[in-house]
Nucleic acid binder design. Structure first.
Lengths: 178, 178
DNA sequence: CGCGGCATGGATCTCGACGACGACGCCTGC
DNA sequence: GCAGGCGTCGTCGTCGAGATCCATGCCGCG
């Protein structure tokens, strides 16, 4: 159901990618597989997450792998499903990995409420916990936590700033309140 | 009685010094005051100690301050009291600092047993604890933990290796068994 | 003697318990 | 509607208790 815990990477490489909504941080491992995606104005939180998941290991600066440049470029250019097949590796608790896996079952253009997401992973009452896990998602966009909104259709919150959540949902043609 | 806990240093500088008993590690703070002295073959332990006392702070490489080169040189050349006036700063628990301060009251050429040292700091039964604190001494030579030996005159143990303890005691003209 | 066993005390590590905290949702009372 | 209160549940930080580890010393036994 949820993917297995990812092994401790031999190396972590941090690179930076320009997007229409600001500079993004891309962390990959020695196989070039994505370990984190976040926005540059939240670099502190991203580093804290990496430390939590992988220990004190230093993070080297590098280039964004060509395949990732290509795939994110397509997504922002309007090919909304471009990220669906992209491999990602995450650590985290069983519950978190369940939530993050469930996120990828929401197609672009659609949204889900925190409640519906909680039901989908079999813990119908763990609504706020789902919110917490959403906030701890290391791989924004690829695990599309921006597609989860309040039961009343409002945007509630987003780790990258509400303006980005709004932009992404508009970009994907989803419906939401105000 | 025991010196106050040293403040967190602004900077730590690690330098290396040749001695008749092998390369030594010298750690100084931004004032050039000694924070650690150990032998190069135990660099791991030294770094662990620094981390414990001063946190994750990185340690820069640098040159041994001229005064220290001079003073250690004199000690190894036979001026056995050359280190007596040297300033040092240590962190650690109250008990540890009491032990380390008491070490400096043992003159070169003399020895004390762990028991006598325990009595000297007012905890006559904390004999093994004194041994532990001795092993956690960050400032070898300057806090002369090598002058503490077993009640039967044997050398027991030394963080820098027994051969160094033996060499130092011979160098200082102290008496000990076998 | 030499050896084994045991008391002794501080530091460190590990665990489990506990409390606080949310990117919510629902119900109530105006 | 809308503001406020509360149930709910996984995380994380903190704290404290208990076990373990030792650079010992002493006693008792062969």
């Amino acid at each position: 159901m949820s993917p297995p815990e990812a092994s401790r990477p031999a190396r972590l490489i941090l690179s930076r990618l320009d997007t229409p909504i600001g500079e993004a941080l891309v962390v990959t491992d020695e196989d070039g597989v994505l370990r984190a995606f976040d926005f540059a104005d939240y670099e502190d939180r991203m580093r804290r997450l990496m430390r939590r998941h992988y220990g004190e290991q230093p993070i080297a600066e590098g280039e964004v792998p060509a395949e990732l440049v290509h795939v994110f470029g397509r997504y922002f250019a309007g090919d909304l499903d471009a990220l669906d097949a992209l491999e990602m590796r995450t650590n985290g608790t069983l519950f978190q990995r369940r939530v993050w896996a469930a996120l990828r079952t929401i197609p672009a253009g659609q949204t889900l409420s925190y409640k519906q997401l909680a039901e989908r992973i079999g813990s119908p009452k763990a609504v706020r916990a789902v919110g917490l896990a959403n906030g701890a998602n290391p791989v924004a966009l690829v695990a599309p936590c921006h597609r989860v909104i309040g039961a009343n259709g409002g945007l509630t919150g987003y780790g990258g700033g509400l303006h980005r959540k709004r932009w992404l949902l508009v970009h994907e043609g989803a419906h939401f309140a105000s």
